[in-house]
Design a protein around this nucleic acid. Structure first.
Lengths: 294, 294
DNA sequence: TAAACATGATGCTCTCCCGGTATTACTTGA
DNA sequence: TCAAGTAATACCGGGAGAGCATCATGTTTA
């Protein structure tokens, strides 16, 4: 097999058509360059340059090989650059999971910020519920999640992205829409309720139970996605507790009413990532976004 | 700059994810392989493999670099093969000039033969009159010509491809078409004649003058291309001496009549080439077609 | 819990390759 | 016929790379 040095030598000679000048260009003397070319020709198995003591010219095989040699050197020069860019996180792939609700609030601005920080990193987006995101982060299929607590802080680092209030979604014609004050738990004691799934949407379930003293006998549906909830409200199946960002969903026939609550903005959205993830693009992103661990 | 050996080593380790087995595959021992990888990483400027004492795995940069390394090695392996094929004449370019008339006779079968002998050689065809072909062969813009004598046998080698008779082209309604015998020079003493150019079509000019005692006062046009001649005959401008292959042109309104002649098939077509042409594809073609020099 | 094992890294030595200097061989032009 | 130019060759010295022996460290096993 030939060496890249031999290729460099050959390219120089092919361009200069003169061993002495080519050697000068390569900061070496002529004899070793002659030998380089001889070895190259031997390993290629074809005469590349025709040379008598007066002139040097390319053979047909040499012209073709010159093309290949140039391509080879270009590739050889580019490969380390690419590798370094990936190692430094300026280039590469980033797989981001997000919940449907976050898609309507923080996702857009966040992606814009990411695009400004690492413009050459390809972003793969996947809409996934929190549980699926956790799974993906564990198996390495995901680099970053936009999800809700709780998660194992032994395994994951996180950064609070966003807080918002909880609001009550009601059918547009509902009597409560006439109320001039925040909704109290008492106002809902006879309302049919569309409730979060205690397994699939445990975060909301726990939050609503804790803050709003849900009467379980009022629950008419149990669902896991905010979008489904709002659709059911629009269909007049009942009322539902949803995060404020759900107002951006733009579904007709639904009104959103403020809730009286002990906590101002109890709904949290976190960016979470595997503590020992290896993706350099993630590392750079976290650094530049100043998502200090935890 | 890294070496191709380092790339080979890296590819082996990346595929085995085990230095010992990779070294075995490369017929070497493990320590120099470890050092190869270290040097490669240093020259690339990025960590490509993450290795503790138990496992080896690729970094993100390593995965990308592996792709590039494979491409590089594939190119490096292919380049000499291509060069050898071109040097042996099995691959490459062949530029062939031909006269319009030969395009209707020998060119098709010849190209078929060439395609069978050197299927991977690209053939560039150019229709050129003999003089232009000679020029092209001298400057190296052409490898092979299909042309008529004379040419300088000091510079060119040649091979007689084809002989044919001369025939007389006359308008379809012409009185001579009634004749039941070959045309004699005497029959043409009052016929308007479309004649070959003594400069541009010197071969035909000389031939016709020598064999058919042209009366110059009968010449109504002087043209250089057979196709033009036959068109003028069709337009009833006169009669013309053309090679027999002109009957294949398929122009309406023209009849071709046999000529009495001292020579059976006086019109020659030669393959000619520059004696010291360098194109290996030409050398192989001439060898395989058994076009012994001259 | 300690010993054996597995595996990548390191130290050392030897050989071979590569580059430099000096010289040769050959061609060309004055 | 000689001078100049240019690629090839001879010879030598330094450095890179391969192998062997060994180390460091983490895992498995008794």
């Amino acid at each position: 097999m030939f060496t890249l040095d031999q290729l460099t030598g050959f390219i120089a000679v092919a361009e200069e058509l003169h061993f002495g000048r080519a050697a000068e260009r390569l900061n070496m003397t002529q004899p070793p360059l002659s030998r380089q070319i001889q070895k190259l020709e031997k390993s290629v198995g074809a005469e590349l340059l025709e040379r008598d003591n007066r002139r040097v010219e390319l053979t047909a095989a040499g012209r073709a090989f010159l093309d290949e040699a140039r391509r080879l050197m270009a590739l050889a020069n580019r490969a380390p650059v690419t590798a370094r860019r990936i190692a430094s996180g300026r280039q590469g792939h980033l797989r981001i999971g997000f919940t449907a609700a976050s898609g309507f609030s923080i996702l857009g601005p966040l992606l814009e910020e990411i695009g400004a920080i690492v413009p050459d990193v390809d972003i793969d987006l996947q809409e996934l519920v929190t549980g699926e995101q956790i799974q993906g982060l564990l198996t390495g299929e995901l680099d970053l999640g936009l999800a809700r607590p709780p998660f194992d802080t032994e395994v994951f680092d996180s950064h609070l992205l966003y807080r918002e209030s909880m609001v009550l979604a009601v059918p547009a014609s509902h009597p409560l829409t006439g109320l001039k004050r925040d909704i109290e738990n008492e106002d809902l004691k006879d309302e049919p309720l569309i409730m979060h799934s205690p397994t699939q949407a445990r975060y909301f379930y726990d939050l609503v139970v804790r803050l709003h003293a849900v009467r379980h006998e009022n629950v008419v549906h149990t669902v896991s996605q905010i979008l489904t909830m709002v659709s059911l409200v629009a269909a007049k199946r009942g009322v539902a507790f949803v995060p404020h960002s759900a107002t951006a969903l733009g579904i007709r026939g639904v009104s959103f009413l403020p809730l009286a609550s002990r906590e101002e903005e109890p709904v949290e959205l976190h960016a979470i990532w595997n503590r020992d993830a290896k993706n350099p693009a993630l590392a750079r992103l976290l650094r530049d976004l100043e998502f200090a661990a935890n």
